[in-house]
């Protein structure tokens, strides 16, 4: 290469380019999968209208291109997809992309807050547990972790609602904003934050437990490594040893897991958003399945795959930043 391109940029571009075949694979796969479904959009439409005469149905099919072979339909679909055209949602009477975009923000908000909570608390508690391994504190933290891990998120959501909304009345039962309040500025931010407390807690707890347990194991492993002994032989100890030598190295597997698990976290939003009536992608997925809005469902698969790919690239970059042995080439 003759042009001096920063390695970070080439690396990012390369990772994004590598992800394209995976996205294509997913879209082809899910398109074919949905073609296996009994009944298509027209059937659903007609069913919704309470029946129609066969000629009209045939005309509709031709209009939607559903009379073509599957391969032709696939080709057309992929072409449209390349222009971010996900088709029309007959349930919302809008282009799918419009429906998706109007809800993307809420889901991202929930993702970011949940992951931040899970990561921060998970890593901190895990490190504390490892530092005091096999002590009373460690047993407490580890037991709590196991319980969190075994707690179904929907059950936890109900418990939170029962306690904080029904009994104590501190937090709103659902939604993203107080309906009809029309707050602005910081008042609006505070309102949204209040609405996000329970969903965030319910979604993050299981991952918090994951990161905590992994961090604990990882810290214990790193503490046994040679270079930690070197640091101690130099006279380093206490917080210095923990932060500079142990924690940073111990974070590596946690970052890997964060990337690998992100899609699961996104999947978990289906339940949480449905319970807390948060108008996000997850809730949309649930209603699309119930109402058989397959175009929207395909759009959700596409957009969530793209988000997962982006998050994975970001975690790879964080990993490379943490570990200088990884060379961004």
């Amino acid at each position: 290469m003759s042009l001096p391109v920063p390695p970070l940029l080439t690396y990012t571009v390369r990772r994004v380019v590598q992800a394209i075949p995976i996205i294509i694979l997913i879209m082809v796969g899910s398109f074919l999968l949905i073609k296996l479904a009994p009944g298509d959009t027209v059937d659903a439409l007609v069913g919704d209208m309470g029946g129609a005469d066969p000629a009209f149905v045939a005309r509709l099919r031709a209009e939607y291109g559903l009379d073509e072979s599957v391969m032709v339909q696939l080709w057309r679909y992929m072409l449209k997809l390349a222009q971010f055209d996900f088709g029309w949602s007959y349930v919302y009477e809008q282009p799918v992309i419009t429906v998706l975009m109007s809800r993307l923000g809420n889901t991202m908000l929930l993702m970011v807050s949940s992951l931040m909570v899970a990561f921060t608390f998970g890593v901190t508690l895990g490190a504390i547990a490892a530092k005091r391994a096999y002590s009373w504190t460690d047993n407490m933290i580890s037991t709590l972790g196991l319980v969190f891990y075994a707690m179904p998120s929907f059950f936890l959501s109900l418990l939170l609602i029962l306690i904080f909304s029904v009994k104590l009345g501190w937090l709103p039962v659902g939604g993203i904003r107080t309906i009809g309040a029309f707050k602005t500025g910081w008042a609006d931010v505070a309102d949204v934050a209040r609405h996000l407390v329970m969903p965030t807690a319910a979604l993050s707890l299981i991952y918090l437990a994951f990161y905590m347990r992994l961090m604990r194991t990882s810290v214990l492993e790193v503490m046994d490594l040679d270079f930690v002994r070197t640091a101690r032989a130099k006279g380093a100890g206490g917080a210095r040893l923990m932060f500079h030598h142990v924690m940073r190295n111990a974070l590596l597997p946690v970052v890997t897991l964060l990337g690998l698990q992100f899609s699961t976290v996104l999947g978990g939003s289906v339940i949480i958003e449905t319970i807390f009536s948060l108008p996000g992608i997850g809730q949309l997925a649930y209603t699309s399945v119930v109402k058989r809005d397959l175009n929207t469902l395909m759009g959700i698969i596409a957009i969530s795959s793209i988000i997962v790919v982006i998050v994975n690239v970001v975690t790879d970059l964080v990993y490379a930043w943490l570990d200088p042995r990884i060379e961004l080439k």
């Binding site: 075949p21 995976i22 996205i23 694979l25 997913i26 796969g29 899910s30 999968l33 949905i34 296996l36 479904a37 690998l260 899609s263 699961t264 996104l266 999947g267 978990g268 289906v270 339940i271 997925a285 649930y286 399945v289 058989r292 469902l297 959700i300 698969i301 969530s304 795959s305 997962v308 790919v309 994975n312």
Partner: peptide, 23 residues
């Protein structure tokens, strides 16, 4: 691994919903 990554990229619960919705 490409196939594995593809499966891992789709949020598993969304895929599960889709499969159940279809079959």
């Amino acid at each position: 691994m490409r196939v594995t990554e593809a499966f891992q990229t789709i949020p598993s619960f969304v895929l599960l919903l889709t499969l159940v919705a279809i079959f």
